Simulated assay, not measured.
Amino acid sequence: MGTIIHGANGGFKGKAGSVIGSSWKSINYIKGLYKKKSKPASEAQLMQQEKFKTLMRFLLPINFFLKIGFGLKNTEKLTPINAAFQFNGNKAITGVYPNYALDYGNISIADGGLYGGGTVAVSYDSGELTYSWSTGGSDVFETFGDDLVYVLAYHPEKDEFISSTKPSTRETGVVSFMVPDHLTTGSVHTWLFLSNRSKTKVSKSVYLGELQLI
């Protein structure tokens, strides 16, 4: 039996006849009872499902970054990871069904209007990844020395992400961290983005390219 929410004119929660009432992010929904499907999925549906799995497999482990990078996108209706999926879905997947792959150069892990890192670079030496960026703040562009800098690397062969243990700052200009021994062969794809200290502004992420670790 359903429970009425906010009086007779409000939404309801629970089952009422052939419909179910629920709410998410203060939005009330009514949907029909689930009916078991006997009709097999169409090729278009299978293609969409495979695209979803391909991209979400990449996004799920980096939800910490997405909460910052996409946490300001349509927050009333979308979670950050769903906003990231929506933003990347049409540009980050390549290949032909069922052999989809990710175009890492077109993947964004953040999108916003904060001024980015200026001249950015990444290098690898003696088992260590080093990211660098411009340090200058600007009152005109509302950038400051304590803006936070996030770096990320992805090893596709091992399907693992690595990063610094905590964000650096714009005024620091550089951050380095060791690559675990089991990841020191092959290559990594690399990204960088910034937020202000309160995480109420974020920059677009920058793809820094693929870096050989051998």
Rank of each mutant, 00 (worst) to 15 (best):
D146H: 08
T130I: 08
A101C: 07
S164D: 12
G137C: 04
G145E: 15
A110C: 05
G145K: 00
G71E: 06
F141M: 14
G95S: 10
Y150K: 06
L129E: 11
E160F: 04
G136D: 12
T130K: 03
P80Y: 00
K67C: 03
G69T: 00
Y154C: 10
E76K: 14
D111R: 14
N88Y: 11
V151E: 03
A92Y: 09
G112R: 07
L129Y: 11
D147S: 06
P98D: 08
K91D: 15
S126D: 08
S134T: 14
G112P: 05
L152I: 03
E157W: 00
E160R: 13
E142A: 13
N99S: 13
D103V: 00
N99C: 07
T119N: 14
G137D: 15
Y131R: 03
S108G: 01
K67D: 09
L152K: 03
V149T: 09
F85T: 03
K67F: 00
L102K: 01
W133C: 02
E76S: 12
D159S: 15
G136L: 11
P156S: 05
E157S: 12
G95T: 10
I107R: 08
I93W: 06
Q86R: 12
N82R: 14
E160V: 09
F87I: 02
G145F: 10
T79Q: 14
Y104D: 09
T130H: 04
F141G: 03
A84M: 09
E157R: 04
S126F: 05
P98N: 09
Q86W: 02
S123H: 04
D159Q: 14
A83Y: 04
T94D: 12
N88D: 02
A101E: 15
G117K: 03
Y124E: 09
P98F: 09
G137E: 15
N90V: 00
I81L: 06
A84E: 14
G118T: 05
K73T: 12
I162L: 15
G127N: 07
